[in-house]
Design a protein around this nucleic acid. Structure first.
Lengths: 203, 203
DNA sequence: TAGGATACCTACTGGACGGTATGCGTCCGC
DNA sequence: GCGGACGCATACCGTCCAGTAGGTATCCTA
């Protein structure tokens, strides 16, 4: 299996290059040639690992699910975990090409509706679960609609990220996440729980 | 000038068709042929009115600015106007193809960065102005960062709209806007002002 | 009623793009 | 030490697309 090490490396190179190009250009405007150039790989190599452009895009999108799966809560406060998740996601957007690419592919609707919805749903499930625990802990305002709240939070983070990207190349993303939490938490969390939270990014 | 009436009609037909196709497929995946078919117009007619695909896209984007310019506040409460603006925009997204198309073109970065930033900035300016008046009226919490708040609101609306589109074809958009305001306003507006607001859509 | 401008139609072109066919070296098992 | 699969390279193909060239009908003006 030593032989496969090289294969895995080229596969990864292609995947990263594809994620970058998809992130920068979008699915339709991304060309295989540019992916090939950036990966330093020939067409034969690419099509050995991925059957088509769409197949390649789907592989990039899977990286997003992998990222969520890899994330683990660090606090015993559910709301704090939610805040931390937001910042961790923001950092991933700034550093991880696969996350960036998959986000753009998810946001761009039209080509593959199925995995997009799944990706959104995965986020909303994770957020919803954290909110549910927070409610059980009595941290939330009474009568908060959990489904509505997780929808708003997921959507808001999506939009914040997008506008930060368009306006500032995602450089102010952390600040904007902080702004979002500052504005959003008072409507969600009861004052006594709010006082115990660290709204800023925690190292 | 009777002659120009027909010309204006075909121009408008092309514009609407283009907005629809851009909305559904995105800029790169949109083809001129589909726009032509949908507008019921030939290539010569289209290229008589618009010099290129990009030119056409820019004309669609301008529709967005026209929409904002056409909107007028109806209340003497700045925050109420902000809420109303959100709902009006949501309705426009559900009914006006030009608004839909221009939004997608604005969100899809890569091709024309300049007008995109301008469109975002226009929204943030409008929101920021309403917030400023609200602050002068003493409706906001003391110490609210107006620039940060308008960025969050603009971004959040963008994201809410996007997720609603992907998940439900924008059918639940009004409900989601309501969810957003419910969650957001307590962190922005003081209780005494909040009590006077109608958070739901006003006919 | 001539004649020019306006508004449009049809046929075509050059290029780029996704994908394939086929060939070639290299390593691994036996 | 050899056969075959693995991993890749190269040349090529058919398709589709944005844009153009040049013609034509309709109308407005004078």
């Amino acid at each position: 299996m030593a032989r496969q090490a090289r294969a895995l490396a080229t596969r990864q190179a292609v995947l990263v290059a594809a994620a970058e190009v998809f992130d920068e250009r979008g699915y339709a405007a991304a060309t295989m040639s540019e992916i090939l150039d950036r990966a330093g790989v020939t067409k034969g190599a690419l099509y050995f690992h991925f059957h088509s452009k769409e197949d390649l895009a789907l592989a990039v999108i899977e990286g997003q699910g992998a990222w969520i799966s890899g994330w683990a809560p660090a606090s015993d406060s559910p709301v704090q975990n939610l805040i931390d998740l937001g910042y961790a996601f923001a950092r991933a957007l700034q550093t991880d090409p696969l996350v960036r690419g998959s986000i753009r592919l998810t946001i761009e609707h039209g080509s593959f509706t199925q995995p997009q919805i799944a990706a959104y749903q995965g986020w909303m499930d994770t957020v919803g679960e954290l909110l549910e625990r927070a409610q059980e802990a009595g941290d939330l305002h009474p009568g908060v609609d959990l489904a509505a709240a997780s929808g708003v939070i997921t959507g808001a983070v999506t939009g914040i990220q997008l506008s930060s990207q368009v306006l500032a190349g995602r450089q102010d993303l952390i600040q904007r996440m902080s702004d979002l939490w500052t504005l959003l938490l008072p409507g969600l969390v009861q004052p006594h729980a709010l006082a115990r939270l660290s709204v800023a990014e925690r190292g």
